[in-house]
Amino acid sequence: MTSALESPDAVTARAPAKVNLELFVGPLREDGFHSLSTVYQAVGIHDEVTAARADEWGCTVSGRDAERVPTNDSNLAIQAARALAERTGGQDPVHLSIHKEIPVAGGMAGGSADAAAALLACNALWETDLSREDLDAIAADIGSDVPFLLHGGTAVGSGRGELVTAVLAKGRYHWVFVPCTGSGLSTPTVYEAFDARTAGSEITDPVPSAALMSALRTGDPLELAPVLDNDLQPDAVGLQPQIGEIIEAAMGFGALAAIVSGSGPTVAILAGSTEGAIDVAVALTASGVAGDILRATGPVHGAHVLPTARLL
């Protein structure tokens, strides 16, 4: 019997964006990636992916920044669906319809969210019944953030970010996100700037900070704010100075903290309450510093199949 969570012809899954509460960058590994220690938090901005049976593989994109998202095999959702099909011995083609709310190339893992949602949608559509551990292994091959977005919540990422361990965390946190205008920042470009800035310095394998772990156990945003940290922030700001202006303005308008999300350019602003988040968002808009603002809370659940399919 087909469950209420899936359709014989189409399945829709939803996946959240992420913010890095902490991002420490270690030395370059033999595979070309840096070793990382990061603390992820999933936040309530979501993309949806509908996988529908089709005669050939395909992809369409709607919603935020849709024109900036590739619809060929470079799309991470397509890569995820094809990888799952190969892992399970070959499956009939699907057409993926992606509806975006997560900023593109903003350091919030929108492409990785689409991949996570595609994995769950196709897993349900094809009734492959892979375990979450099996899906994690496929996800890790697609991208460093994809495994976390399958899990959600708050978690430590190690390795290149793909090894995920849940964190004991309390509380609900209120975020304001300001996607910087322009074409975004290329993650490789930001890491190249980091490498140039730290050349000649001794860089050791990073570990999560005790201060952040302790703050998360309190559930108090006032404890969390001063320990948010991102090794890539100086490089992102250097490449796109507007980021620094937004951070400075947000702090002047009463934010508890403001930090670059991932490799940028989105600025993640921590507020103390719903009202505080609204006040900061309004002030940033009124001042002309930012016109495009998103609000969300975290942590939220990871990727999940929706009760009904929504064809876009």
Rank of each mutant, 00 (worst) to 15 (best):
A80I: 13
G219K: 02
C122T: 00
D134L: 08
V25C: 13
L21I: 14
N123A: 10
A166S: 14
L125Y: 06
A66R: 13
P8F: 01
P234F: 12
V267R: 10
D205P: 08
D92N: 11
P8A: 08
K18D: 01
G161W: 06
T71Q: 15
D220E: 10
E6C: 14
T189L: 12
N20A: 07
A296F: 05
V19K: 05
L185F: 00
D47T: 11
P147F: 05
D134H: 15
R197N: 10
K100N: 06
P299W: 15
A77K: 06
D92G: 14
K170P: 05
V176C: 12
G152F: 09
T12G: 05
V260I: 14
A215I: 14
E162H: 07
T2E: 07
P16F: 05
A116N: 11
R82V: 13
V260Y: 01
S35R: 14
G298P: 09
V289M: 07
A118M: 06
A249P: 14
S7E: 13
E101V: 11
G106C: 06
C59F: 10
H301Y: 02
F253E: 13
A77G: 12
W126Y: 15
A115I: 13
N75Q: 03
L185W: 00
P147A: 06
A210Y: 11
G252E: 04
